[in-house]
Simulated scan of single mutants.
Amino acid sequence: MTTVGRRERKKVQTRQALADAALRLFLERGYDGVTVAQIADAADVSLATLFKHVPDGKEALIFDDGAQRREALTATVRDRPAGTSILDALRAFMSGRGVFATELSPELRRYRDLIVATPALRDYQRKLWAASEGALAEAIAAEAGRDAADPALRALARYVLEIPDVVGMGPDPLAAMNAVFDLLAEGWSGP
Rank of each mutant, 00 (worst) to 15 (best):
A155I: 08
D182H: 12
V167R: 00
S189Y: 11
L90V: 02
I86K: 05
I62S: 02
R7S: 13
V99R: 11
M1Q: 13
A117G: 06
R6N: 08
L153C: 06
T84Y: 01
D150A: 07
R122K: 13
S132Q: 02
E143Y: 01
L23N: 08
P55N: 04
A48Q: 12
P173L: 12
A179Y: 08
Q16E: 15
F93V: 02
G33F: 12
A142M: 02
I163N: 03
M177P: 07
A148V: 00
A148G: 06
M177C: 15
P81V: 08
R80Y: 07
D182N: 12
T102V: 11
K127Y: 02
K11A: 14
R91K: 12
P151D: 14
V167Y: 02
A82K: 13
W188E: 13
L174Y: 10
D20P: 00
V45T: 12
E162S: 14
T84R: 15
L161Q: 06
L161V: 06
V45K: 09
P106H: 04
R24W: 04
P106K: 01
Y31V: 07
V99W: 10
R80V: 08
F100G: 03
E103N: 12
A43P: 10
T102Y: 09
A185N: 09
E186I: 06
S85V: 07
A22C: 09
L87K: 00
I86Q: 05
A72M: 12
D88E: 15
R110Y: 01
V166K: 06
G190E: 10
T118A: 03
A67G: 10
A155R: 13
T118L: 01
T76F: 03
